[in-house]
Design a protein around this nucleic acid. Sequence first.
DNA 1: TTGGAACTGGACGGTACAGTACCCATGGAG
DNA 2: CTCCATGGGTACTGTACCGTCCAGTTCCAA
Lengths: 206, 206
Amino acid sequence: MDINGQGRSARKHQAIMEAATAVFMEKGYAGTSMDDIARLAAVSKQTVYKHFSDKEKLFSAIVLATTDRIDSTIDLLAGGPIDAADLEENLTRLARRFLTALTHPEVIQLRRLIIANADIFPDLGTEWYERGFERGLATLAATFQRLADQGLLRIDDALLAANHFSGLLLWIPVNKAMFTGRSQHTEADLDRYAAAGARVFLAAYR
Amino acid sequence: MDINGQGRSARKHQAIMEAATAVFMEKGYAGTSMDDIARLAAVSKQTVYKHFSDKEKLFSAIVLATTDRIDSTIDLLAGGPIDAADLEENLTRLARRFLTALTHPEVIQLRRLIIANADIFPDLGTEWYERGFERGLATLAATFQRLADQGLLRIDDALLAANHFSGLLLWIPVNKAMFTGRSQHTEADLDRYAAAGARVFLAAYR
DNA sequence: TTGGAACTGGACGGTACAGTACCCATGGAG
DNA sequence: CTCCATGGGTACTGTACCGTCCAGTTCCAA
């Protein structure tokens, strides 16, 4: 045992994961070499291969770990209660938090990383879609369903409503970020998108 | 001069473009070698380099050419007149054609290709976004503006309305296609998306 | 202290691939 | 028929990088 309450091996493992995440995010799968990762982790290449049998395994590991981190953030967001009073303001606030979370550089980078390599890692793409995307939508749908049960929304298909909500909000900024690399949304832009999206959503579903 | 009314050189040029498009679409930028392209085009590698100074130039050329082809299709779609009578049915039909066009495998593949390489080719990503995306939205916005001028829609910001329209329609199927590679939307799915999207849009903007 | 496991650093085999140099075939002009 | 020029094909160079091997070192537990 040592300073951090974990063995040397665990610390190296962590260092490799962090370095690999940084480099893969920055330069993509094909663009990063195992030597890059080892160097940044301050670890020998041999050690990298002790912990992860090959480059593909390492890539999968860091993608899934990051997906988990993001998932929990989204769940926290989408699952939160919404005050019945002042529905529009509360939905707008939810929309705004959604936008902040999903246009975060880390999320955008991960999206691009997965899309870029969906050919080579089809399972990874599918898993991210199901766990990171559909699950978030399901949580959002559950929230909407609760509001519908309280008579605040009129909803046939809660999942479809959740899809519409996110489509209204995210289509613009996410696309821009996908294509132009770094996205430069001002806070004011996001405010506008949130307000307009919530307004349209309520016009259709209240 | 020869059989086709064009020189050998022009025919080879064409063959290289077609082969390159196919291979890049299939295996991505990093995944395709110049030898692959030359082999598929039934041409020597030397000839490829005679026509395109290097791999990056060739890639840009095929992406821009394909973008042009898609652009004109979209313009045709979005710019068409919409009958004043039976607005909902006509909008639904427009939505349906939009979905068909933009979930076409060629379009999806090109999207993924550009997103995947937006790091290495930032200009290409930006150009596609401006020409293939914002321009399409602008055309759609103009159509909506016409409808608003006829008193059929109530619209403040036509461009925002166009964004909402496409977000409602495309968020689901495009995302699924991005992450899971080949998308398997049934025609019935697309019908549902079109009808639901048009309904929500009209609820907010009529 | 001591044994053993994990780590280091470097070098190396094998392979894939971008781009180039050089040689050959074909076809038109005289 | 012959000669020359244009454009196509083959073989090569240099480089990058995955994954492995080995000999020596550091860390941890008992």
